[in-house]
């Protein structure tokens, strides 16, 4: 299957205030791959993720998601294919109850009541939060918020999951649960994070970004054990590799 590929070709992006965040990024992600995007603070990871479903459109270069080239017309269609989970779950969970939040996407897709209910139930059961469905988001713990945020995206059945720092602010147990959850997904995954141990665990491939360009792209276990490369990018060896 080739229709779930993500292809960036020489993508640049300049913010309205003149900051150029992406300076010619190219890569191809194939169907079912899980890819970690790492880099220093301010290297352009978040900007890159905001391009994935067309919140930002590239200043130059092309982005191809599946068979569609991202532009103003296709971005509605692309948003159904790419689910983005944000860094701060409080930004993502904006409805008064968990159920309504997870149902937001499916209802917008025009599904009837019955299939909306089915999708919500399914998504919440996958992340293990079905019992919380009538709670308001501000009564959830950090780990629960994160899980519900993921459910609110997978209820739309996206082909591609993009996540910004999914493991930040989680206690070790919740983090482990998240990693196991991510491993169980068959979607194409793109994860931007500083949690290199998680990337090593979840992603087989890793892209390193520095100042808006790709400086390394390859198998995670090779890239994440290259101490020199990592230190040049304000990173360090994953803890699990440091013990050796």
């Amino acid at each position: 299957m080739s229709h779930h590929i993500v292809k960036f070709e020489n993508v640049t992006f300049i913010y309205p205030d003149g900051t150029s965040a992406l300076k010619g990024i190219s890569f191809t992600i194939n169907h079912g791959e899980s890819v970690g995007v790492v880099g220093a603070n301010g290297s352009g990871k978040t900007t890159l993720l905001m391009h994935l479903n067309g919140y930002l459109l590239p200043t130059s270069g092309t982005i191809k998601i599946g068979d569609l080239i991202l532009n103003k017309k296709t971005r509605i269609e692309i948003r159904k294919k790419v689910g983005v989970v944000f860094q701060n779950p409080d930004d993502q969970l904006f409805m008064p109850t968990v159920y309504e939040d997870v149902a937001f996407g499916p209802i917008n897709m025009g599904l009837d009541e019955h299939s909306v209910d089915f999708k919500v139930r399914n998504a919440l059961e996958i992340v293990g939060c079905y019992d919380l469905k009538n709670k308001p988001p501000h009564h959830l713990s950090g780990g629960q918020k994160r899980a519900v945020a993921i459910a609110s995206v997978i209820s739309m059945d996206p082909d591609i999951l993009a996540m910004d720092e999914p493991s930040s602010n989680l206690d070790p147990k919740s983090r482990r649960a998240l990693i196991n959850l991510l491993k169980s997904f068959k979607h194409t995954k793109i994860i931007a994070s500083h949690d290199l141990d998680m990337i090593l665990d979840v992603c087989e491939r890793c892209i390193v970004i520095k100042d808006g360009v790709v400086v390394a792209d390859g198998p995670s276990n090779i890239i994440l054990s290259d101490q020199k490369l990592l230190e040049e990018n304000n990173l360090e060896l994953p803890l699990i590799l440091q013990r050796r």
């Binding site: 919140y55 948003r79 689910g83 930004d91 937001f104 917008n108 739309m156």
Partner: peptide
């Protein structure tokens, strides 16, 4: 702005959906 982005990425089209 971030919330609006989150809404857009889940197909918000100007109408707030709600469950019956």
């Amino acid at each position: 702005e971030r919330i609006y982005y989150a809404m857009l990425s889940r197909g918000y089209n100007g109408n707030m959906p709600y469950n019956k």
